[in-house]
């Protein structure tokens, strides 16, 4: 078996190089002392990072994105808790179709979500703003939250809650004392994942943002100007470092959740 595995191993490592190639280039050009994004390299500089601090439009965009991502992660995690709880604990008429419909944005092209929301929001006269972006982002993040929280609720033994009720607690205090602490790791990783998705989402924000661009929309507008590219590389480096940090935190909580409920690690997100 071992000898068979080496071929696969080499292939998988090659595949990982393919996956990481663009990301590895990012810091290389971010520190490259040239306005042209191409080889050969011209020397080391931190100018591009320093330049980021001088662009107010970027700072507004970052602030918008943060507000949108934080609101989205909280709202979609709340909606996710309701839906995941209902789907793992209860049987009710129409369960399959209802949950299927809620999960639909997972497989719906984002441009469809974006244009259909745009049509309705403009149709009823709502002005585009950060809030309209949040509406769209919550819609596409909720299925991810549900998927993560579903596994959190599933690994929660139903008899733990029954035991708490049997020992004199009410439904609400049982949720507070037993359910909530035990699904906490799932909630944290749902918050982090929705935050990351919202922070990175472009199409919906592009259609629904109005006059307050989010960070991806800002980046998109800058990609047309070749002189802005090196600082976009610097910005990208910061973003990648940030999302990898967030992911590691999310992964840490997911594993702790599994360890706590005494279960087996079954794999990654999704």
């Amino acid at each position: 078996m071992r000898s068979k595995g080496t071929g696969f191993r080499a292939y998988t490592i090659a595949y990982l190089i393919f996956l990481y190639a663009p990301i590895v280039l990012l810091p290389i050009f971010a520190f490259n002392n040239s306005t042209i994004i191409a080889f050969p390299l011209a020397g080391f500089t931190t100018n591009w990072f320093r330049e980021l601090a001088t662009i107010p439009a970027l700072h507004h965009a970052v602030w918008n994105s943060l507000v949108i991502a934080v609101s989205t992660s909280i709202l979609s995690t709340c909606l996710g808790v309701f839906a995941a709880r209902a789907s793992t604990r209860y049987d009710f008429p129409g369960k399959g179709p209802i949950i299927g419909f809620i999960m639909l944005p997972l497989v719906l092209p984002e441009i469809i979500v974006a244009v259909s929301l745009l049509v309705v929001l403009l149709g009823i006269g709502i002005e585009l703003s950060a809030w309209t972006v949040i509406l769209g982002h919550v819609l596409i993040c909720t299925p991810f939250s549900i998927a993560i929280l579903n596994s959190a609720f599933q690994s929660l033994d139903k008899s733990l809650e029954e035991a708490a009720i049997d020992l004199g607690e009410t439904r609400w205090s049982t949720f507070r004392l037993i359910t909530f602490p035990l699904i906490m790791p799932g909630i944290i990783s749902s918050l982090l994942i929705s935050f990351t998705i919202s922070l990175d989402e472009f199409i919906i924000a592009f259609f629904l943002t109005g006059t307050q661009p989010t960070l991806p929309v800002y980046i998109w507008s800058q990609l047309r100007f070749p002189t802005k590219l090196p600082s976009i590389m610097a910005l990208g480096t910061i973003l990648v470092a940030l999302s990898i940090t967030l992911l590691i935190i999310a992964e840490y909580f997911r594993r702790r959740g599994i360890a706590r409920s005494g279960g087996q690690d079954a794999g990654g997100f999704l």
């Binding site: 033994d157 008899s159 029954e162 708490a164 049997d166 020992l167 602490p181």
Partner: peptide
């Protein structure tokens, strides 16, 4: 009468020991 108001207590098959 809900379970938390009954003069009964239960030992569950999985024991339901609160892991946290």
């Amino acid at each position: 009468v809900p379970p938390n108001k009954r003069p009964t207590n239960m030992v569950f098959q999985s024991y339901a020991i609160f892991p946290h």
